[in-house]
Design a protein around this nucleic acid. Structure first.
Lengths: 345, 345
DNA sequence: CATCAATATTTACGTGTGTAAAAGGGAGGA
DNA sequence: TCCTCCCTTTTACACACGTAAATATTGATG
């Protein structure tokens, strides 16, 4: 017994016997209408099938109640974790989020931004690609709507609000830990297209100098070309171990995915990283990728506070939307990382 | 030097000196318009900033050019891989996709479905929750628009198109492999709320009987309650190993995430699964989770053909949208799994 | 220069809803 | 009974664009 389907609010108004503007207000907020009328409307909605047209409702509204989020990868649990935090925060604020993935392609990223602007979203949250994002797109975004960057901060966009981790603190934290408990670490980096990678590299160098050690960086050149972080970490260390190098060193990886590859390379060479044997191989990461506790050995790392980052990004966006804030000077929110001590270092 | 911003196509038409209907057709397909006029329009668009309003363009169109996709989790690389395949296929077909994540909540799933219907999407692709989806939602979805289920097939929805893996084949394949190379495996299952888990369990039983072995199933009851697959696998095996059980058995896990937990439990008890020692511990999974090659030991598993599944789901949707197909009888498309032999079994 | 076809413009109406102002109606109090 | 007051309805317009039919323009051809 399928209910009769009603397409327009007009038709619904005659079916229920309530004027269309009243229905319009009912769907926006039932409290605006007398309880008795509300009851009649709800009773009528029981008998028929009707949903207000998404486009028509948004066409003539000042606020669409939507925010757009752009992330660079889907196949990365860090970003999905961040996205979840954003979605939860947005839901609590009564916003619906439209997610677009740029697949690390500047063109797709630009298209997504265009889409958001054409949809009159109330604001946009963007996790930028490395240095190959089209910064003109960001300029337009900033000039047209509330706009907050997350996780990665392009040097070319100093005037945009930003929420992320304090690499100086987080990378400094694990660097210092590694130095205290064992030999000072080598830094396993990434090809220099990623601002986070650069920031952490700089933080590592600073902390090492502060402690009086000589910084040492490897993995800046791409060894493999499959584009995956794990593959990079494995390839770099596989080569090093094969040449009899690094097998007794502490290795701080730029992020956990690289560290996963690093651990794998160690295993292939019969090495088991861990804090057990002094002077032996140790491997640490950064991010607290969800699988860290389940690796063998489990991965010592620094957790990014994705929950706080997502929550802050949304609340900052709401501030700007609300207009209760000066936007001439950007707000930079950095959250501390938290040491996660496990087996690998 | 910000370009002047133009809001409506009307304003644009006076700014460029081309009629509005001509502009409308230009934005739909420039080929409909004389090259000389196209040049003039494009030249004009260089000088001003204008994007057609998303809602207005969709409001009065027969086809919105959008499809909706619902997945249950974001923090699962299997689903993100599937989503990528869908997005690629959709992009090639000129469709844009709207993704919603239900966070394994039937209410959110239902809301997402409502949203899709109110947006007049051309079709919907849904990866259902386990047995707790609201099937009334699916019924409405099916009655209102082209609708294809992916990955998991509720028994309550036999009349809906479905694209997924052939569990009988894939689970049979790895079961047979394990039986040939070593002792017949135990099946490490999941609490029975997941149709895939049930399907694979049944496939395991069938193959074992076919080969003349006695099926043996563990892990049906939840041991932990954190909701993560890895935690389930680890908890079940940790308990078993602690009791001196299963340490010399072959263990086929219902999926790779459970297997990751299983391997972790083994490591904690000093066990290294692998096909090396006859009669020793072996662990295998299902899905080919992207991290399988990087685990220690790397995980032997059966790859689901997510690429083919995503592609087929989109093409089937396009068929239904095109109307060139009988929808009275559902099409069930099952793809074969492919054995991925690695170290763990 | 006239003619025809291709293309562009004009005109007019449709899409489903938001929103504001004015007019209508019923309940309560004087 | 009359008069507020509050809520609802009516009326009207706005939103930005799709679409179709009729008309005007352009260019090439003869």
């Amino acid at each position: 017994m399928p209910k009769p389907r009603i397409k327009t609010m007009e038709d619904l108004s005659v079916a229920i016997g309530v004027s269309r503007p009243t229905l319009s207000r009912f769907f926006q907020d039932p409290n605006l209408i007398k309880p008795k009328t509300v009851a009649r409307i709800e009773e009528g909605l029981e008998r028929v099938e009707y949903v207000p047209n998404f486009f028509a409702t948004r066409l003539n509204r000042k606020s669409t109640g939507m925010i757009g989020v752009i992330i660079p990868y889907l196949n990365d649990l860090f970003f999905t974790k961040l996205l979840e935090a954003v979605e939860v925060a947005a839901m609590e604020a009564g916003l619906s989020v439209i997610t677009k993935c740029s697949h690390s392609d500047p063109l797709i990223e630009a298209r997504a931004a265009e889409t958001f602007m054409s949809m009159n979203v109330d604001g946009a949250l963007v996790t930028p690609l490395g240095d190959h994002s089209d910064q003109a797109v960001y300029q337009r975004l900033k000039s047209r709507l509330p706009f907050v960057l997350m996780d990665s901060r392009p040097t070319t966009m100093p005037d945009v609000d930003y929420v992320g981790s304090d690499h100086m603190q987080s990378t400094g934290l694990i660097t210092e830990y590694l130095c205290r408990v064992g030999d000072p670490p080598v830094f396993l980096a990434m090809p220099r297209v990623n601002f986070n990678a650069l920031g952490r590299e700089a933080a590592y160098i600073a902390k090492m100098k502060e402690l009086g050690f000589e910084p040492e960086i490897i993995g800046v050149d791409a060894v493999n070309d499959d584009g995956y972080f794990e593959g990079h970490g494995e390839a770099v260390l596989d080569k090093a171990f094969a040449q009899g190098q690094l097998a007794d060193r502490s290795i701080l990886c730029v992020n956990d995915r690289v560290a996963i590859g690093a651990i794998r390379a160690a295993a292939r060479h019969g090495l088991t990283p861990g804090r057990g044997a002094r002077g032996g191989l140790r491997i640490a990461g950064h991010d607290d990728y969800p699988l860290c506790p389940y690796l063998n050995p489990s991965l010592t790392t620094v957790a990014q506070n994705t929950d706080a980052i997502g929550r802050k990004a949304v609340s900052r966006l709401l501030q700007i939307i609300g207009g209760s804030v000066a936007t001439d000077t950007p707000e930079i929110s950095l959250f501390d990382g938290e040491l996660k001590l496990r087996e690998s270092a």
